[in-house]
Every structure is written in structure tokens, then in C-alpha cells.
Design a protein around this nucleic acid. Structure first.
Lengths: 227, 227
DNA sequence: ATCCAACCATAACGATGTTATGCCTAAGAA
DNA sequence: TTCTTAGGCATAACATCGTTATGGTTGGAT
């Protein structure tokens, strides 16, 4: 049937961005299984061919979703305010990391390659070794953590290499977030019971004074408040 | 066509176990995308109907794979020898955890719900909150960690709750293992550079003496040797 | 006015999980 | 031994998925 309004800019965004936005929205709402070409085409009012003209296929579309996810993630990490106390900054960064991941659980899982629609690896061309090799967007986010860790190490007697220490801290929070997203912690307040104690131990492990780190954790924990 | 040998026990296992074994083998060899009903049927020399007769569908089959994975995982953790030094035991347990996960990366990822064929959640009926709620097989494996952590805490001045401390340590090693499986650490020796330092920090965080924990890590790291 | 190249709607193809149908074998009862 | 019965599986079809082939439409350049 002929369209009634041939020139109808539903949004001012170009079709490619509209597809990407709709894909991220579908992923967040229905999980990876909702990322289907036909459903996506219906969402933006076009046909499945648009996916192939603008992305080349579902695989490359998922790659672009991952890239956009890392960009948003990096921006969120940048927005965390930095103060005079490196230990407090480290804990605050960890909390923001967890908040962002739990606000976008499906996107977070897709970013780290732990899930992908259709079982096929989403971003084969940008590889999963994001920090080590490709994907500059991932490196930018990781660099923020390295910077904060460097300040903690320089303020104390520890001599560990900052990048190595940052990788350890990243491992810990990554595992914590995935377990919380998967529901392994049930109804417990994971931040109070697990994340802040874990962050405190790691901060002390890279040279922070134990009583100082504990005080920072208490302050940050209290600052969260109850909704 | 009529079968030449109607009574041909290819293996002495019943069809259900043969399907489960073949499924785990397919998963390990080809990843989640290789877990297909037709391929599985061809592997055991039957038709896709066998999957529905014995499991009810691919979803329940994946659930059984997860259960079998947790059983094997728990057995592996049990086999780690325990000595007089709780800190050494904790680090050894962490190393065995990592070894087993890296020997069965696809199974490990499926167990923790971080991947699933066809994008649909594999084990909806046994839920992912394995430790908190269902799946006794997962609880058994987690209990091993709690036991070792309890010994470390009781030997030192720390008063943290063992289950909470164990969850933190589990988070850390889980995140480390997933990042290593995904290739984020490149060609580095992750055990030396990340896992042992991480384990040392956490052991100290739950009350181990810093120099003692460092010595245990050096001994265990040296004991790995080069192949 | 004409042409062209990009874009996309339609329809078909291969492959997937699933289901309907019926045969066929093995075990138990007469 | 023969008949009955119930479970197990082979076959084939169906719905849905990603993908591709084809051709029409549209907006701008010449």
C-alpha cells in the first residue's frame, strides 16, 4: 500500500541511528532474544532490509550496540566526581560502575560478550579482548580506573604496577556485578554486604590505610540512603 | 530402511545419558551455537524426537547440562587437597577453580548463565540464583569455599562473616576467570600477574598475615612450573 | 526533462526448534 | 505361543529466525 505521507520524519535522526536506538531499547526491554530483525524493522516502521543496508547484518548491528554501550559506559565513568581523597574516589567509581551495570544489565552483558542473540558471537570483528587489543572505547573506560588506582598507589607505600592492580580490581567488580545481575545474591543488599567490603579489601591491598579505607566505605555506604 | 542389527548397544549407557554426554561434548567443541537438536541427534545416531522424549526440549536439556556441570565442578573442588595452612588452601582452591574453568570454558559460561544457545535462557526452572535459592549442586560447590574461608578467618583477628567473605572472594575469581576466558588479558600470565596478587589481597583482607599470604602465593606460583 | 544511485518493500530460501503422526519393537498376559 | 499394549523413535510438516534476490520508488544531479 502506498504511504499516506511519503516524507514523514518521525524523528530527526537518520535511519541508522533510529535502528540503533530501537535495538538498544529492544535489548533492554526483552533481552537478547528480543533482538530480531523483523521485530526491529517493525519497531522503526521499515523492513528488515534496512538492517542490511545500514549495518550489513545482525552481527554488525550487535557490534555497533557493543560500541555504543562502551561509549555510554565511559561517559558515565567520566561523570563520577573526583575529590581530594583517592581512596574515596576509587570506591565511588566502583559504586558508579555497579549502578550503571545494574541499570543496563542486558547491555552490560552484551558488552562483555557474555551473551549474544542466536548464540553467535556478536562482535567477532572487534574481538572480546577489548582492553588488551581492539576497541578504543573500552580502553578509554579502563583508563579511568587505572588513573584512580595510580593515585591510590602513589599516595601509599605499595609498589604494585597500576595497570596490574586495576585489572585485579576490575576482575573483582566485574564478577560481583555479573553475579548480582544473575540473581545469585538474592535479596541481600549486595553493596553493603559484598561490594563495599570487597572494595575496601582491595584498596587496602594496594596501599590504602585500613582504617581510612573503612571510614570511606562507611561514608559512601551511608550516603546511599534508602529510597 | 530396516536396521541390520536391531539390538546394537553402541555404548552401555542409556539413550538419555548418551544424549547428555554428546551435548556436553558438542558444547565444549563448538560453543553454544553447536548445541542444536539435529546435530545432537546425528551425533548419537537418532532423531530429534529423542531429545523431546528424554528431556522435553532443548531448554530442559540445557538445564541438565548446567546441573551436570555443577556436579563436576563440585567434585573437582573436593579433590583439591587440604593441608594445615588455611591460607595456602584458599589460594590452592582458587587456582583449581581457575584451572577447571579454563579447561571447560564453554561449560563454565553456560553454568553461570552468561551464554545460552538461541538466546533463550537455558535453565529457567533451576534459576540462576543457585547459591541463594535453588540448585543444591551449586550450593555444594560454594560450601567448599565457605569452609576454607572460615578456617582462615578463625585463625586470624578478622571478624567478618564467612559466607559474606566467601561471596566476595567468589565474585573476584568469577570475574577474573570470565575476563581471562574472554581473552581480555591477552598473552599475559594471568595467574602470576593478576590471580595470585588478587587472592593475596583478599586473604589479607580476611585476616591472614600479609607476609604469610605473600609467601604462600610465591610458593604456589613457583609450584606451577613451566610445561 | 532525464538519468542515476541509494534505499527499501516484497517474497523467497535455508536452517532452526518444535509438534503431529504413525510405525515398530519389547515386554507382559492369556 | 500368540495377542495386546505402551513406550520410543523416524518421518514429515509447521512457525520463525537470519539472510538474499529482485524490482520499484524516490530524491537529487546533470
Amino acid at each position: 500500500m502506498a504511504r499516506v505521507t511519503p516524507r514523514k520524519p518521525v524523528t530527526d535522526a537518520n535511519p541508522r541511528d533510529r535502528l540503533l536506538e530501537a535495538a538498544i531499547r529492544l535489548l533492554a526491554a526483552g533481552g537478547p532474544e528480543a533482538l530480531q530483525a523483523r521485530r526491529l524493522a517493525a519497531e522503526v516502521g521499515t523492513s528488515t532490509m534496512a538492517v542490511y543496508t545500514h549495518f550489513g547484518g545482525m552481527g554488525q548491528l550487535i557490534t555497533e550496540i557493543m560500541r555504543e554501550g562502551f561509549i555510554r559506559f565511559g561517559r558515565r565513568m567520566e561523570k563520577v566526581p573526583r575529590g581530594d581523597d583517592p581512596v574515596a574516589d576509587l570506591l565511588a567509581l566502583g559504586l558508579a560502575y555497579r549502578d550503571h551495570a545494574l541499570e543496563n544489565p542486558q547491555l552490560y552483558r552484551l558488552m562483555f560478550g557474555v551473551t549474544s542473540p542466536g548464540g553467535r558471537q556478536g562482535g567477532k570483528d572487534l574481538a572480546l579482548s577489548a582492553v588488551a587489543n581492539a576497541l578504543p572505547e573500552g580502553q578509554a573506560a579502563f583508563a579511568q580506573l587505572v588513573a584512580v588506582v595510580t593515585r591510590v598507589i602513589e599516595a601509599g607505600p605499595c609498589e604494585e604496577e597500576p595497570a596490574s592492580a586495576a585489572a585485579q580490581i576490575w576482575s573483582a567488580i566485574h564478577g560481583y556485578v555479573l553475579l548480582e545481575i544473575a540473581g545469585f545474591f538474592g535479596d541481600d543488599d549486595g553493596v553493603e554486604r559484598f561490594l563495599l567490603p570487597l572494595g575496601t579489601k582491595l584498596a587496602v591491598g594496594i596501599g590504602a590505610a585500613p582504617e581510612h579505607a573503612a571510614r570511606c566505605a562507611r561514608l559512601i555506604g551511608a550516603g546511599r540512603g534508602v529510597p
